[in-house]
Each structure stands twice: as structure tokens, then as C-alpha cells.
Design a protein around this nucleic acid. Structure first.
Lengths: 140, 140
DNA sequence: ATCTATGCAAACATTTTGCAGGCTG
DNA sequence: CAGCCTGCAAAATGTTTGCATAGAT
């Protein structure tokens, strides 16, 4: 709830203007478990702040991405946005569409092993597994 | 070079028609190390077969995806296609854009650990790491 | 001869951009 | 009050679809 404050503060410190739109968007993306698309985020933000355009949502997401405050996940159905900045594994249910997270420890030392083997210096990663979640198993 | 034959054969056996376009597209995607976009694939195929439309490339890719012969990777810049069907890790160089593969063994038992923990039945996955490849390090 | 696959163009969906006016700092 | 930010609409991508015809079986 108040991590919104700290994100807003750091934007302010960098000289970006703090508008009601930005506050609303930041607040929503930080406080949702789901991984909303731009449209979904727009719709959600509009419930409280009808005066937010989709273009502004995109522009704000772009800003937050550059600042490393949200990450973009590209799916065949379009981009989704995620504020969980720690490395994690996304579990995507192909039946109901829910996306679950698992924390970083799940990955073990994968990153360092790969970096060494391939001689890459790693900046970030994306890990997804597709399947049926516990509730959707059996009802294919 | 002749895995093209076996893919074509299995399409033939399933009753799909074998057109020069399909052969050309299958041949290209199986015999490239790169992970081409639909446009790139179209351009490449056209060099030998000028009579191939982009729509046909998309339709053929759709067919091959359904048959499990290629996989689609969705990047912010658009979809890319990959014929390496074994599970593997994609290494994306953020500087020069090259995409390298690492084989499945890199993943260890990640999948089974996750499946157990989250009670998902896993169908497939996607693993990517972003960073600087060995040639691009230092020249940021 | 049959019926699928192709090619074209139009339709679509998503994301980006240009610009005039409004609001933050 | 200077200039960044917004909202609108138009534009730019990337992908899909409908339909008439060519072509594989």
C-alpha cells in the first residue's frame, strides 16, 4: 500500500512530475496480484479515475519499465505487466489463464551456471512454465 | 538438411498437401540457427521462391506450431520462431540481438520441482536470459 | 475432379506518435 | 509561467481472415 509512496517519491526525486494519473497507475500495478494487460490496467484505473487515457497508461508503463519498476511479459495474446521485480517463475494455466508466481529460490543457481557456460553477462531473465493449475486438472 | 524430408513426410501422412511454399518454409526454419520473425522468414524464403506471400508464411507457421514442429517465442518486438524443439534456454544479447541456445540439461530438475511445489501439471516452458554476449561485453 | 492451400487485400488488435492545451513544480 | 504530461486521434506495427482461383492428390 505504501510502496506506492516510495515509487512516487523516487520519481519525484528524479524530476518527473507527479500527476494523479501516474499515482493511480502506480498504485494499481503495485497492489495487484494479477498480471494485467494495458487494457485491463486502464479499465481498473478508470473505475476510480475516469480521466485516464489508454495512451497515458502506455506512456506511464514505458516510464516505469525504464525505471525498472515494472517488467513487461510478452505473450501471444499481448503484453502483460508485472510489478514483482524479484526474479521468479511464472506459472501460466493454459485452461483458466491464471498466472502464478514462484519465488527466486526455485531457480537455484541456473543463472550463474548459464552465464559461465555461455560467457554472457546476465542482466535479467524470464521463466515461464505452461500447464494446468491444480483446479483445472482433469477438466481439459 | 534431410530432417526437412521427415517433417514433410509426416505432414503428407496426415493428409496435408505438400506445396512448394510449405517445403521452402519448412526447409528454412529447420536449417537456420537464428530465430527469425515471420517477416525475416518471408524475406529469406522469397530469395529462392519469390511467389510466397506473407500470409502463407503465417498460415504455415500456424500449422507447424499446431503440429509441434516449431515453437513461437513472443518478444516485445514481435514473435520469433524456433525449430529447436527440445527444452532449452534462450540467451538474448541486448546489444547485438543474437539469440543463443543452451540445451535442456542446463535446466536440471527445475520443471519437476516447480510442478510439485505449485501442483501444476506442466506442458511446456520458456526460459530466457538477457544480457551481453561475449563479443558485446565492454562495448556498451 | 475435388477440395485444400495460396495470394491478395481488407480487417484487426495492440502499441506508438504528434500536437494543442492543461497542470505541476 | 515554463515546460512536461495528458488526451485525442491518427498512424504504425504485427497478425489474422475472407474469398476467388491455382494447384496437389
Amino acid at each position: 500500500m505504501h510502496q506506492t509512496e516510495s515509487v512516487i517519491d523516487s520519481l519525484r526525486k528524479e524530476g518527473f512530475r507527479i500527476t494523479p494519473q501516474r499515482v493511480a497507475i502506480v498504485n494499481h500495478i503495485l497492489n495487484t496480484e494479477s498480471h494485467p494487460s494495458a487494457e485491463e490496467l486502464h479499465a481498473a484505473v478508470r473505475k476510480k479515475h475516469p480521466m485516464v487515457s489508454l495512451a497515458t497508461v502506455y506512456k506511464t508503463l514505458e516510464l516505469l519499465k525504464k525505471k525498472g519498476m515494472v517488467r513487461e511479459l510478452d505473450f501471444p495474446t499481448g503484453a502483460r505487466y508485472d510489478s514483482n521485480l524479484e526474479k521468479h517463475v511464472n506459472l501460466v494455466c493454459v485452461k483458466c489463464g491464471r498466472i502464478d508466481d514462484m519465488d527466486e529460490s526455485t531457480l537455484g543457481d541456473l543463472e550463474s551456471r548459464v552465464a559461465k557456460k555461455a560467457r554472457y553477462s546476465i542482466l535479467g531473465g524470464r521463466f515461464e512454465l505452461y500447464g494446468y493449475c491444480s483446479q483445472c486438472q482433469g477438466k481439459k
